[in-house]
Amino acid sequence: MKPNGWIIYNGNLPGSKFIDYAEMIQEAAAKQGSDMKIYKNNALLSLLATDQLGIVQLDKAELPDFVVFADKDIYLARQLELIGIPVFNSSKAIEISDDKIASYQFLASKNIPMPKTIIAPKIFTTGKVDYKLVEKAVEQLGLPLIIKEAFGSFGEQVYLLHSLEEVIAKIEVIQSRPYLFQQFIPSSYGKDLRLQVVGNQVVAAMERTNTNDFRANVTSGGTMKKYTPTKEEATLAITATKAIGADFAGVDLLIGPDNKCLVCEINSNAHIRNLLDCTGINAADFIIVHILEVLS
């Protein structure tokens, strides 16, 4: 008998893309004979006490054999793991992926090609911008440069800045939040590659292009077309996914000088509808097969 599971997505976010991902996973599981129920994260409460560690459910259903966690609520994901339920991706992988600073630290520790990056010192309030700090970052990275907030999705909270004055002005706005400075890769302006990794393979890929924005994200106006990655590009994406401990991920690659790719981001909860529309390949089928193989 195949194991049965839950799919958890964020119940507070607007739009249909989050439930759409959950339904794609549910349909893929049904093809494999595995029954999966869809839950909003706010329908599950984590209960902690001296002699209790559990999940309070609104419908009091039996706990699952495994969970596909299509959200960033790492506290709930960790709670499920603590009571012995396998979670895909793991709470640790989701936590690293969600934090761009942590992601780049793990990539750098594994010598994975990435843009040169400087982490801004953590502060807990706002104040006068440290001009020496900004000048040192510009000296190391040059202009224009990228500033990225540690937390953000769909290409948002990423800024291309062309002058010292622009950099300082942006820092004055975001300085209370964690952020980083990053080398701008002009050869990848408005273009990147999205490779969907599942286990030890790239199951689908697309090239994204935006003629009006330095970000290639489709949500920023980019267009997409099916892409066949080179062996080197596929290996890079798989290695990056493993570096953060994920079972599957959408890996964004920048096109560096001489067409050598650099890892831009690793998305542990990458939406796969655009990938299906672009390539005709449903990554959900591969994700479910991989999970069932891991559990067997």
Rank of each mutant, 00 (worst) to 15 (best):
L236N: 11
L295V: 10
L164C: 12
D98M: 07
I168S: 10
K100P: 09
S153W: 00
A150C: 00
V173L: 11
I168T: 15
I147E: 02
Q175E: 10
S176R: 14
S220H: 11
G190Q: 03
D20H: 12
E139H: 13
A93L: 07
I291T: 10
N111T: 12
V87R: 05
K17G: 07
L254H: 10
I146E: 09
K31C: 11
Y75C: 04
L133K: 11
P113I: 07
E165K: 09
I101T: 10
G280P: 00
K191W: 09
D130L: 03
P86H: 11
S16I: 10
I146N: 01
D130Q: 02
C278A: 15
E232T: 14
A137Q: 03
V68D: 00
N282S: 14
T209V: 15
E232H: 06
L58S: 12
I123L: 06
F106G: 01
E135T: 09
V263R: 00
A28K: 06
V158P: 02
F184Q: 09
M36R: 04
G280E: 02
I55A: 06
I55T: 05
Y189F: 14
G127F: 01
Q182R: 07
H162D: 12
K225T: 14
K231V: 14
D99K: 03
K170L: 15
I123Y: 08
D277A: 14
S34N: 04
A284C: 02
F18P: 04
K122C: 08
